[in-house]
Design a binder for these strands. Structure first.
Length: 227
DNA sequence: TTATGATCATCG
DNA sequence: CGATGATCATAA
């Protein structure tokens, strides 16, 4: 008998236990659990599953730049799976502060801190399945392996080299093997402050860090091997 | 506006 | 048909 969870978990074990209550639920059932309405169209509810998962699991609400479970240092990410059970989209990690990125090390980088411990919550996102009938899977608590951490740092350094030179205009999603940079804004006309190549203040398209699907596919694959 | 939660939709 | 660039919703 599952019931609505809204209290922040005080331990990792409690969080994982709560995740077991979610496993196997359809999105329609999730809506009931969180006393929410199932969106009619996912087109206008892009972050809905993630937000309901936060609500159910007691993640700290809002848009604060801190982990979803601050006391546990755990970040929650939903992982949309295609008909073959593979991640079908990239994963947004965080916004990039173009104004405060000089002399940052990988250890200090917000994108790195966010990826220290991630609770992945896979769910069926195939459009072959009616939205309300798509089911949630078993959560995976993940930490980057030494190899993964190395790969991420390598991508980050390549990207930061350009960002710190004010070359954000020349950056595209083509850079980085696993970690990439893409626009993160309401639309293509949105602007945020940055420095240009001459070090002058300028306005530019806001960017965010994303993980390519290949990276999350590997996480999912490894989790099966360890079950 | 800056953050969070992401997926959409077009193009190569 | 996968990836890139664009877009949608919400909070503070």
């Amino acid at each position: 008998m599952a019931s609505k969870q809204t209290k922040a978990p005080s331990s990792t074990q409690e969080l994982l236990n709560n995740c077991r209550l979610l496993a196997g639920l359809s999105l329609a059932e999730l809506a009931k659990q969180t006393h929410s309405t199932l969106p009619v169209s996912p087109v206008h509810a892009k972050g809905w599953v993630g937000q309901q998962a936060e609500k159910f699991l007691g993640a700290s609400a809002g848009s604060k730049a801190e982990p979803d479970f601050p006391n546990l240092g755990i970040e929650l990410k939903t992982l949309p799976l295609n008909a073959n059970g593979q991640p079908q989209e990239s994963t947004y990690v965080c916004h990039i502060q173009l104004m405060g990125l000089n002399q940052q090390t990988w250890q200090q980088a917000w994108v790195n801190k966010k990826l220290q411990r991630v609770l992945w919550l896979p769910y069926e996102a195939s459009k072959n399945i009616e939205y309300g009938k798509r089911k949630i899977g078993h959560a995976i608590l993940w930490q980057p392996s030494p190899s993964q951490a190395r790969q991420l740092q390598q991508d980050w350094e390549e990207i930061m080299e350009k960002l710190c030179m004010g070359e954000q205009q020349q950056l595209s999603a083509h850079h980085g093997q696993f970690l990439q940079v893409r626009p993160k804004a309401a639309n293509s006309k949105a602007l945020t402050k940055a420095y240009d190549e001459q070090g002058k203040l300028c306005q530019t398209l806001p960017l965010g860090f994303y993980l390519r699907p290949d990276f999350t596919r590997e996480i999912l694959k490894n989790s099966y091997l360890h079950q």
